[in-house]
Amino acid sequence: MLSKGQARAFFLGGTAVTFAVFLGLSWNSLSTKVPKQTHAENITPQVIRGKHLWESNNCMGCHTIMGEGAYYAPELTKVVERRGDNYIKAALMSKTPWSPRGRKMVAYGFSEEEANDLVAFFTWIGNTDLNGFPAKPKYKTTQNF
């Protein structure tokens, strides 16, 4: 039967090995692969300003992006493709809570410039290679505009 010393060696050894592999793979991903897959060269100052607005207002507290966030409001990775710039700007600049389908967004009333920054951020996100996410639906039913 396994002794306590062997059990400890299993714990320490296993942890050390998997952690080392994990760090190696993370380095490999972040140093070259991620910048290429996400087109890091397209992250302009405008995109960064958009990301700041995204974060300082905690949009992730209602929406998901790249599938991460909250489940109360639409997933926004492909929002530019789905709705187009003008629709998005209308939602962002609205002075009353945006809610064409009944559920309310916060009425941010952003300026035209801020709205453009956010659109730039969504455009950049929409062009990243997410290994196929979000999957195209198998059927086209009531996609409404």
Binding site: F11, G14, T15, T18, F19, V21, F22, L25, N28, S29, K33, V34, Q37, T38, M66, G67, E68, T128, D129, L130, N131, G132, F133
Partner: peptide, 19 residues
């Protein structure tokens, strides 16, 4: 730890990280 550390990969499927 043996499963969970590399298991972090289940969050790296669809966020712009390698296949």
């Amino acid at each position: 730890f043996i499963s969970g550390v590399l298991g972090t990969g289940h969050h790296y499927y669809y966020i712009g990280t390698p296949k």
